[in-house]
Design a protein around this nucleic acid. Sequence first.
DNA 1: CCTGGGGCCTGACATTTGTCACCGACCGGG
DNA 2: CCCGGTCGGTGACAAATGTCAGGCCCCAGG
Lengths: 201, 201
Amino acid sequence: MIRILLADDEHLIRGAIAALLGLEEDLEVVAQAATGAEALSLARALRPDVAVLDLQLPDLDGVAVATTLHAELPSCRTMIVTSHGLPGHLKRALTGGVRGFLAKTVSAEVLATVVRTVHAGGRYVDPQLAAEAISAGDSPLTTREADVLALAGDGAPVEEIARRAALSPGTVRNYLSSAVGKTGAANRHEAARIARSRGWI
Amino acid sequence: MIRILLADDEHLIRGAIAALLGLEEDLEVVAQAATGAEALSLARALRPDVAVLDLQLPDLDGVAVATTLHAELPSCRTMIVTSHGLPGHLKRALTGGVRGFLAKTVSAEVLATVVRTVHAGGRYVDPQLAAEAISAGDSPLTTREADVLALAGDGAPVEEIARRAALSPGTVRNYLSSAVGKTGAANRHEAARIARSRGWI
DNA sequence: CCTGGGGCCTGACATTTGTCACCGACCGGG
DNA sequence: CCCGGTCGGTGACAAATGTCAGGCCCCAGG
Protein backbone atom coordinates (compact mmCIF):
# COMPACT_ATOMS: atom_id res chain seq x y z
CA MET A 1 0.00 0.00 0.00
CA ILE A 2 1.40 3.36 -1.05
CA ARG A 3 0.72 6.10 1.51
CA ILE A 4 0.05 9.48 -0.06
CA LEU A 5 0.07 13.07 1.19
CA LEU A 6 -2.09 15.37 -0.93
CA ALA A 7 -1.72 19.17 -0.93
CA ASP A 8 -4.00 21.51 -2.85
CA ASP A 9 -5.62 24.72 -1.71
CA GLU A 10 -8.91 24.04 -3.43
CA HIS A 11 -11.00 21.89 -1.16
CA LEU A 12 -13.19 20.56 -3.93
CA ILE A 13 -10.27 19.49 -6.08
CA ARG A 14 -8.34 18.04 -3.19
CA GLY A 15 -11.27 16.00 -2.01
CA ALA A 16 -12.07 14.83 -5.51
CA ILE A 17 -8.53 13.71 -6.27
CA ALA A 18 -8.33 11.99 -2.91
CA ALA A 19 -11.52 10.13 -3.70
CA LEU A 20 -10.18 9.05 -7.08
CA LEU A 21 -6.85 7.88 -5.73
CA GLY A 22 -8.62 6.11 -2.91
CA LEU A 23 -10.43 3.95 -5.46
CA GLU A 24 -7.13 2.34 -6.44
CA GLU A 25 -6.37 -0.86 -4.60
CA ASP A 26 -2.78 -0.07 -3.75
CA LEU A 27 -3.08 3.65 -2.99
CA GLU A 28 -4.13 5.33 0.23
CA VAL A 29 -4.41 9.06 0.87
CA VAL A 30 -3.28 9.38 4.48
CA ALA A 31 -3.26 13.17 4.74
CA GLN A 32 -4.62 16.25 3.01
CA ALA A 33 -3.21 19.76 3.33
CA ALA A 34 -4.49 23.11 2.10
CA THR A 35 -1.26 25.06 2.59
CA GLY A 36 2.46 24.48 2.21
CA ALA A 37 3.13 24.77 5.94
CA GLU A 38 0.38 22.30 6.70
CA ALA A 39 1.78 19.89 4.14
CA LEU A 40 5.22 20.05 5.74
CA SER A 41 4.00 19.44 9.27
CA LEU A 42 1.75 16.59 8.17
CA ALA A 43 4.59 15.02 6.23
CA ARG A 44 6.90 15.20 9.23
CA ALA A 45 4.28 13.57 11.43
CA LEU A 46 3.05 10.88 9.08
CA ARG A 47 6.04 10.18 6.82
CA PRO A 48 4.06 9.36 3.68
CA ASP A 49 5.61 7.47 0.76
CA VAL A 50 4.63 10.01 -1.87
CA ALA A 51 3.66 13.68 -1.63
CA VAL A 52 1.39 14.96 -4.41
CA LEU A 53 1.65 18.75 -4.37
CA ASP A 54 -0.21 21.43 -6.23
CA LEU A 55 2.14 24.06 -7.63
CA GLN A 56 0.08 26.98 -6.30
CA LEU A 57 -0.41 27.00 -2.56
CA PRO A 58 -1.35 30.02 -0.47
CA ASP A 59 1.96 30.32 1.38
CA LEU A 60 4.95 28.37 0.06
CA ASP A 61 4.65 27.09 -3.46
CA GLY A 62 4.71 23.43 -4.28
CA VAL A 63 8.32 23.43 -5.39
CA ALA A 64 9.48 24.99 -2.12
CA VAL A 65 7.61 22.33 -0.16
CA ALA A 66 9.12 19.62 -2.33
CA THR A 67 12.64 20.97 -1.87
CA THR A 68 12.24 21.01 1.90
CA LEU A 69 10.77 17.54 1.95
CA HIS A 70 13.56 16.25 -0.24
CA ALA A 71 16.09 17.50 2.30
CA GLU A 72 14.27 16.48 5.44
CA LEU A 73 12.58 13.25 4.39
CA PRO A 74 14.49 11.69 1.51
CA SER A 75 12.32 8.59 1.77
CA CYS A 76 9.29 10.66 0.78
CA ARG A 77 9.12 11.01 -3.00
CA THR A 78 7.57 14.22 -4.28
CA MET A 79 5.56 15.07 -7.36
CA ILE A 80 3.93 18.26 -8.61
CA VAL A 81 0.52 18.64 -10.23
CA THR A 82 -0.34 21.97 -11.77
CA SER A 83 -2.83 23.90 -13.85
CA HIS A 84 -0.47 26.43 -15.39
CA GLY A 85 2.82 24.84 -16.32
CA LEU A 86 5.60 27.37 -16.70
CA PRO A 87 8.95 26.11 -17.95
CA GLY A 88 10.84 27.78 -15.10
CA HIS A 89 8.84 25.91 -12.52
CA LEU A 90 9.68 22.60 -14.07
CA LYS A 91 13.37 23.36 -13.95
CA ARG A 92 13.21 24.55 -10.36
CA ALA A 93 11.20 21.50 -9.44
CA LEU A 94 13.64 19.03 -10.94
CA THR A 95 16.63 20.63 -9.26
CA GLY A 96 14.62 20.54 -6.02
CA GLY A 97 14.38 16.77 -6.19
CA VAL A 98 10.87 16.46 -7.57
CA ARG A 99 10.37 13.13 -9.39
CA GLY A 100 7.04 13.69 -11.09
CA PHE A 101 5.63 16.76 -12.82
CA LEU A 102 2.34 16.77 -14.64
CA ALA A 103 -0.54 19.00 -15.66
CA LYS A 104 -4.06 18.69 -14.31
CA THR A 105 -5.22 17.91 -17.81
CA VAL A 106 -4.09 14.31 -17.48
CA SER A 107 -6.53 11.55 -16.61
CA ALA A 108 -6.86 9.93 -13.23
CA GLU A 109 -5.29 6.71 -14.49
CA VAL A 110 -2.18 8.57 -15.51
CA LEU A 111 -1.98 10.20 -12.12
CA ALA A 112 -2.23 6.86 -10.37
CA THR A 113 0.36 5.36 -12.68
CA VAL A 114 2.75 8.21 -12.04
CA VAL A 115 2.29 7.87 -8.30
CA ARG A 116 3.35 4.24 -8.60
CA THR A 117 6.25 5.09 -10.90
CA VAL A 118 7.53 7.75 -8.54
CA HIS A 119 7.12 5.51 -5.54
CA ALA A 120 9.17 2.84 -7.28
CA GLY A 121 11.98 5.36 -7.72
CA GLY A 122 11.22 6.34 -11.29
CA ARG A 123 10.62 9.76 -12.76
CA TYR A 124 7.89 11.17 -14.94
CA VAL A 125 7.54 14.54 -16.61
CA ASP A 126 4.56 15.53 -18.71
CA PRO A 127 5.86 15.36 -22.30
CA GLN A 128 4.16 18.58 -23.35
CA LEU A 129 5.52 20.54 -20.39
CA ALA A 130 8.96 19.06 -21.02
CA ALA A 131 8.84 20.16 -24.65
CA GLU A 132 7.83 23.68 -23.66
CA ALA A 133 10.61 23.85 -21.11
CA ILE A 134 13.19 22.77 -23.64
CA SER A 135 11.98 25.14 -26.32
CA ALA A 136 11.88 28.04 -23.86
CA GLY A 137 15.49 27.40 -23.02
CA ASP A 138 17.59 29.00 -20.34
CA SER A 139 16.99 32.48 -19.15
CA PRO A 140 19.26 34.95 -20.95
CA LEU A 141 18.77 37.47 -18.16
CA THR A 142 21.43 38.20 -15.60
CA THR A 143 20.43 38.06 -11.95
CA ARG A 144 20.01 41.79 -11.66
CA GLU A 145 18.06 42.07 -14.88
CA ALA A 146 15.65 39.43 -13.65
CA ASP A 147 15.31 41.18 -10.27
CA VAL A 148 14.56 44.52 -11.80
CA LEU A 149 12.21 43.09 -14.38
CA ALA A 150 10.29 41.27 -11.67
CA LEU A 151 9.82 44.52 -9.77
CA ALA A 152 8.72 46.21 -12.98
CA GLY A 153 6.14 43.50 -13.47
CA ASP A 154 3.25 45.19 -11.72
CA GLY A 155 3.57 48.45 -13.57
CA ALA A 156 5.55 50.42 -11.00
CA PRO A 157 7.42 53.51 -12.25
CA VAL A 158 11.21 53.46 -12.43
CA GLU A 159 11.59 55.55 -9.28
CA GLU A 160 9.83 52.97 -7.16
CA ILE A 161 11.71 50.07 -8.71
CA ALA A 162 14.92 51.89 -7.95
CA ARG A 163 13.94 52.36 -4.31
CA ARG A 164 12.80 48.79 -3.89
CA ALA A 165 15.93 47.40 -5.50
CA ALA A 166 18.22 49.92 -3.79
CA LEU A 167 19.57 51.03 -7.17
CA SER A 168 19.87 54.31 -8.97
CA PRO A 169 17.08 55.09 -11.45
CA GLY A 170 19.59 55.23 -14.28
CA THR A 171 20.84 51.75 -13.51
CA VAL A 172 17.31 50.45 -13.39
CA ARG A 173 16.67 51.87 -16.81
CA ASN A 174 19.81 50.29 -18.16
CA TYR A 175 18.85 46.87 -16.85
CA LEU A 176 15.34 47.22 -18.14
CA SER A 177 16.60 48.30 -21.53
CA SER A 178 18.90 45.31 -21.64
CA ALA A 179 16.11 42.98 -20.60
CA VAL A 180 13.80 44.45 -23.23
CA GLY A 181 16.46 43.78 -25.84
CA LYS A 182 17.03 40.21 -24.74
CA THR A 183 13.34 39.35 -24.67
CA GLY A 184 12.67 40.97 -28.01
CA ALA A 185 9.91 43.04 -26.45
CA ALA A 186 8.88 46.58 -27.37
CA ASN A 187 8.84 47.87 -23.79
CA ARG A 188 9.43 46.67 -20.27
CA HIS A 189 5.83 45.71 -19.65
CA GLU A 190 5.80 43.37 -22.57
CA ALA A 191 9.23 42.15 -21.51
CA ALA A 192 7.88 41.36 -18.07
CA ARG A 193 4.98 39.44 -19.56
CA ILE A 194 7.29 37.41 -21.78
CA ALA A 195 9.73 36.68 -18.98
CA ARG A 196 6.89 35.59 -16.75
CA SER A 197 5.43 33.33 -19.38
CA ARG A 198 8.80 31.68 -19.76
CA GLY A 199 9.28 31.36 -16.02
CA TRP A 200 12.36 33.57 -16.08
CA ILE A 201 11.11 35.74 -13.28
CA MET B 1 -32.35 11.50 -10.25
CA ILE B 2 -30.74 14.78 -11.25
CA ARG B 3 -28.93 14.54 -14.60
CA ILE B 4 -25.77 16.64 -14.72
CA LEU B 5 -23.55 17.99 -17.50
CA LEU B 6 -20.03 18.73 -16.32
CA ALA B 7 -17.63 21.01 -18.21
CA ASP B 8 -14.01 21.61 -17.20
CA ASP B 9 -10.93 21.67 -19.34
CA GLU B 10 -8.78 19.82 -16.84
CA HIS B 11 -9.35 16.13 -17.32
CA LEU B 12 -8.17 15.18 -13.86
CA ILE B 13 -10.45 17.69 -12.13
CA ARG B 14 -13.40 16.87 -14.33
CA GLY B 15 -13.07 13.17 -13.74
CA ALA B 16 -12.57 13.66 -10.03
CA ILE B 17 -15.61 15.88 -9.61
CA ALA B 18 -17.67 13.50 -11.70
CA ALA B 19 -16.61 10.65 -9.44
CA LEU B 20 -17.55 12.60 -6.34
CA LEU B 21 -20.93 13.65 -7.66
CA GLY B 22 -21.59 10.12 -8.83
CA LEU B 23 -21.28 8.92 -5.27
CA GLU B 24 -24.45 10.81 -4.35
CA GLU B 25 -27.62 8.75 -4.55
CA ASP B 26 -29.69 11.30 -6.42
CA LEU B 27 -27.06 12.72 -8.79
CA GLU B 28 -25.87 11.34 -12.11
CA VAL B 29 -23.22 12.85 -14.36
CA VAL B 30 -24.56 12.10 -17.85
CA ALA B 31 -21.98 14.03 -19.87
CA GLN B 32 -18.54 15.58 -19.57
CA ALA B 33 -17.13 18.28 -21.81
CA ALA B 34 -13.65 19.79 -22.09
CA THR B 35 -14.61 22.85 -24.12
CA GLY B 36 -17.48 25.30 -24.29
CA ALA B 37 -18.55 24.17 -27.74
CA GLU B 38 -18.55 20.57 -26.67
CA ALA B 39 -20.63 21.45 -23.62
CA LEU B 40 -23.22 23.18 -25.80
CA SER B 41 -23.59 20.33 -28.25
CA LEU B 42 -23.80 17.74 -25.49
CA ALA B 43 -26.39 19.81 -23.68
CA ARG B 44 -28.50 20.08 -26.83
CA ALA B 45 -28.32 16.36 -27.37
CA LEU B 46 -28.84 15.15 -23.81
CA ARG B 47 -30.87 17.94 -22.20
CA PRO B 48 -29.41 17.60 -18.71
CA ASP B 49 -31.17 19.05 -15.66
CA VAL B 50 -28.16 20.98 -14.41
CA ALA B 51 -24.96 22.15 -16.15
CA VAL B 52 -21.94 22.57 -13.90
CA LEU B 53 -19.48 24.78 -15.80
CA ASP B 54 -15.93 25.81 -15.09
CA LEU B 55 -15.41 29.53 -15.64
CA GLN B 56 -12.25 29.02 -17.72
CA LEU B 57 -12.73 26.92 -20.82
CA PRO B 58 -10.45 26.90 -23.85
CA ASP B 59 -12.90 28.49 -26.27
CA LEU B 60 -16.01 30.16 -24.85
CA ASP B 61 -15.92 30.94 -21.18
CA GLY B 62 -18.34 29.38 -18.73
CA VAL B 63 -20.57 32.44 -18.57
CA ALA B 64 -20.98 32.52 -22.34
CA VAL B 65 -21.98 28.87 -22.35
CA ALA B 66 -24.43 29.48 -19.53
CA THR B 67 -25.98 32.44 -21.31
CA THR B 68 -26.51 30.42 -24.48
CA LEU B 69 -27.93 27.50 -22.55
CA HIS B 70 -30.27 29.79 -20.66
CA ALA B 71 -31.66 31.03 -23.96
CA GLU B 72 -31.83 27.69 -25.77
CA LEU B 73 -32.68 25.30 -22.98
CA PRO B 74 -34.46 27.16 -20.20
CA SER B 75 -35.18 23.87 -18.48
CA CYS B 76 -31.46 23.32 -17.96
CA ARG B 77 -30.27 25.19 -14.88
CA THR B 78 -26.69 26.41 -14.99
CA MET B 79 -24.06 26.93 -12.33
CA ILE B 80 -20.45 28.11 -12.42
CA VAL B 81 -17.52 26.71 -10.49
CA THR B 82 -14.27 28.63 -10.59
CA SER B 83 -10.77 28.93 -9.20
CA HIS B 84 -10.28 32.67 -9.59
CA GLY B 85 -13.43 34.53 -8.70
CA LEU B 86 -13.48 38.01 -10.20
CA PRO B 87 -16.38 40.26 -9.26
CA GLY B 88 -17.15 41.12 -12.86
CA HIS B 89 -17.62 37.49 -13.78
CA LEU B 90 -20.16 37.03 -11.05
CA LYS B 91 -22.21 39.94 -12.28
CA ARG B 92 -22.03 38.78 -15.89
CA ALA B 93 -23.00 35.30 -14.80
CA LEU B 94 -26.06 36.39 -12.86
CA THR B 95 -27.34 38.54 -15.70
CA GLY B 96 -26.75 35.56 -17.99
CA GLY B 97 -29.17 33.45 -16.00
CA VAL B 98 -26.68 31.48 -13.92
CA ARG B 99 -28.27 30.23 -10.71
CA GLY B 100 -25.23 29.01 -8.82
CA PHE B 101 -21.76 30.49 -8.49
CA LEU B 102 -19.10 29.07 -6.23
CA ALA B 103 -15.36 28.76 -5.79
CA LYS B 104 -13.46 25.50 -6.05
CA THR B 105 -12.45 25.93 -2.45
CA VAL B 106 -15.81 24.62 -1.28
CA SER B 107 -16.24 21.03 -0.20
CA ALA B 108 -17.90 18.31 -2.23
CA GLU B 109 -20.92 18.27 0.05
CA VAL B 110 -21.52 21.94 -0.62
CA LEU B 111 -21.24 21.34 -4.35
CA ALA B 112 -23.78 18.53 -4.19
CA THR B 113 -26.10 20.62 -2.06
CA VAL B 114 -25.90 23.52 -4.46
CA VAL B 115 -26.62 21.24 -7.40
CA ARG B 116 -29.82 20.19 -5.63
CA THR B 117 -30.71 23.76 -4.70
CA VAL B 118 -30.22 24.95 -8.25
CA HIS B 119 -32.17 22.04 -9.67
CA ALA B 120 -35.05 22.88 -7.34
CA GLY B 121 -35.14 26.39 -8.77
CA GLY B 122 -33.15 28.08 -6.01
CA ARG B 123 -30.04 30.18 -6.26
CA TYR B 124 -26.70 30.07 -4.50
CA VAL B 125 -23.76 32.44 -4.60
CA ASP B 126 -20.56 31.89 -2.65
CA PRO B 127 -20.81 34.39 0.23
CA GLN B 128 -17.17 35.43 -0.06
CA LEU B 129 -17.37 36.04 -3.79
CA ALA B 130 -20.60 37.94 -3.28
CA ALA B 131 -18.97 40.17 -0.67
CA GLU B 132 -16.05 40.87 -2.98
CA ALA B 133 -18.37 41.69 -5.84
CA ILE B 134 -20.32 44.12 -3.71
CA SER B 135 -17.25 45.82 -2.32
CA ALA B 136 -15.69 46.11 -5.78
CA GLY B 137 -18.80 47.87 -6.99
CA ASP B 138 -19.76 48.83 -10.50
CA SER B 139 -17.21 49.63 -13.11
CA PRO B 140 -16.70 53.39 -13.36
CA LEU B 141 -15.23 52.96 -16.84
CA THR B 142 -17.13 53.87 -19.97
CA THR B 143 -17.32 51.27 -22.72
CA ARG B 144 -14.53 52.83 -24.72
CA GLU B 145 -12.30 53.28 -21.72
CA ALA B 146 -12.69 49.63 -20.88
CA ASP B 147 -11.98 48.63 -24.50
CA VAL B 148 -8.85 50.69 -24.73
CA LEU B 149 -7.63 49.62 -21.33
CA ALA B 150 -8.11 46.00 -22.27
CA LEU B 151 -5.97 46.47 -25.35
CA ALA B 152 -3.36 48.24 -23.24
CA GLY B 153 -3.31 45.29 -20.90
CA ASP B 154 -0.54 43.36 -22.57
CA GLY B 155 1.87 46.26 -22.68
CA ALA B 156 1.31 47.40 -26.24
CA PRO B 157 2.34 50.95 -27.14
CA VAL B 158 -0.29 53.58 -27.86
CA GLU B 159 0.24 53.37 -31.63
CA GLU B 160 -0.75 49.72 -31.70
CA ILE B 161 -3.71 50.21 -29.41
CA ALA B 162 -4.88 53.00 -31.70
CA ARG B 163 -4.64 50.74 -34.73
CA ARG B 164 -6.36 47.85 -33.06
CA ALA B 165 -9.16 50.04 -31.73
CA ALA B 166 -9.40 52.07 -34.95
CA LEU B 167 -8.88 55.28 -33.02
CA SER B 168 -6.48 58.19 -33.20
CA PRO B 169 -3.46 57.93 -30.88
CA GLY B 170 -4.50 61.14 -29.14
CA THR B 171 -7.93 59.75 -28.34
CA VAL B 172 -6.40 56.57 -27.01
CA ARG B 173 -4.25 58.60 -24.67
CA ASN B 174 -7.25 60.56 -23.49
CA TYR B 175 -9.19 57.41 -22.66
CA LEU B 176 -6.22 55.87 -20.96
CA SER B 177 -5.65 59.00 -18.95
CA SER B 178 -9.26 59.02 -17.88
CA ALA B 179 -9.11 55.34 -16.95
CA VAL B 180 -5.93 55.88 -14.97
CA GLY B 181 -7.65 58.64 -13.05
CA LYS B 182 -10.75 56.56 -12.32
CA THR B 183 -8.78 53.56 -11.10
CA GLY B 184 -6.47 55.65 -8.96
CA ALA B 185 -3.45 54.11 -10.66
CA ALA B 186 -0.14 55.75 -11.42
CA ASN B 187 0.00 54.63 -15.06
CA ARG B 188 -1.98 52.62 -17.55
CA HIS B 189 -0.28 49.35 -16.79
CA GLU B 190 -1.21 49.54 -13.16
CA ALA B 191 -4.68 50.69 -14.20
CA ALA B 192 -5.01 47.62 -16.41
CA ARG B 193 -3.97 45.38 -13.52
CA ILE B 194 -6.49 46.98 -11.19
CA ALA B 195 -9.30 46.85 -13.72
CA ARG B 196 -8.56 43.22 -14.43
CA SER B 197 -8.52 42.32 -10.76
CA ARG B 198 -11.92 43.93 -10.39
CA GLY B 199 -13.27 42.21 -13.47
CA TRP B 200 -13.91 45.54 -15.21
CA ILE B 201 -12.15 44.43 -18.34
C1' DC C 1 49.53 40.67 -14.04
C1' DC C 2 46.07 42.06 -16.99
C1' DT C 3 41.98 41.41 -19.37
C1' DG C 4 37.13 40.64 -19.75
C1' DG C 5 32.64 40.48 -17.85
C1' DG C 6 29.21 41.62 -14.55
C1' DG C 7 27.47 44.94 -11.41
C1' DC C 8 26.71 49.84 -10.57
C1' DC C 9 26.49 54.46 -11.80
C1' DT C 10 26.21 59.09 -14.59
C1' DG C 11 24.86 62.12 -18.28
C1' DA C 12 22.66 63.23 -22.55
C1' DC C 13 19.30 62.56 -26.01
C1' DA C 14 15.06 61.13 -28.64
C1' DT C 15 10.76 59.04 -28.03
C1' DT C 16 6.76 57.81 -25.60
C1' DT C 17 3.62 58.76 -22.13
C1' DG C 18 0.38 61.40 -19.23
C1' DT C 19 -2.24 65.55 -18.72
C1' DC C 20 -4.91 69.40 -19.96
C1' DA C 21 -7.68 72.55 -22.69
C1' DC C 22 -10.65 72.72 -26.12
C1' DC C 23 -13.46 71.48 -30.36
C1' DG C 24 -17.34 69.07 -33.03
C1' DA C 25 -20.94 65.33 -33.53
C1' DC C 26 -24.46 62.61 -31.85
C1' DC C 27 -28.26 61.16 -28.76
C1' DG C 28 -31.74 61.18 -25.07
C1' DG C 29 -34.37 63.46 -21.46
C1' DG C 30 -36.38 67.49 -19.30
C1' DC D 1 -35.30 73.09 -28.06
C1' DC D 2 -31.45 73.02 -25.20
C1' DC D 3 -28.54 70.60 -21.96
C1' DG D 4 -25.51 67.08 -20.49
C1' DG D 5 -23.00 63.03 -21.47
C1' DT D 6 -20.39 60.00 -24.37
C1' DC D 7 -17.65 59.43 -28.37
C1' DG D 8 -13.92 61.04 -31.35
C1' DG D 9 -10.48 64.22 -32.23
C1' DT D 10 -6.41 68.06 -32.15
C1' DG D 11 -2.59 70.52 -30.18
C1' DA D 12 0.65 71.54 -26.71
C1' DC D 13 3.46 70.76 -22.75
C1' DA D 14 5.67 68.26 -18.86
C1' DA D 15 7.13 63.97 -17.20
C1' DA D 16 8.56 59.32 -17.74
C1' DT D 17 10.88 56.03 -20.48
C1' DG D 18 14.17 53.90 -23.81
C1' DT D 19 18.74 54.15 -25.63
C1' DC D 20 23.51 54.98 -25.95
C1' DA D 21 28.20 56.08 -24.57
C1' DG D 22 31.15 55.97 -21.16
C1' DG D 23 33.29 55.51 -16.41
C1' DC D 24 34.39 53.03 -11.91
C1' DC D 25 34.86 48.86 -8.99
C1' DC D 26 35.61 43.90 -8.31
C1' DC D 27 36.70 39.27 -9.31
C1' DA D 28 37.92 35.06 -11.96
C1' DG D 29 40.70 32.95 -15.55
C1' DG D 30 44.41 32.92 -18.73
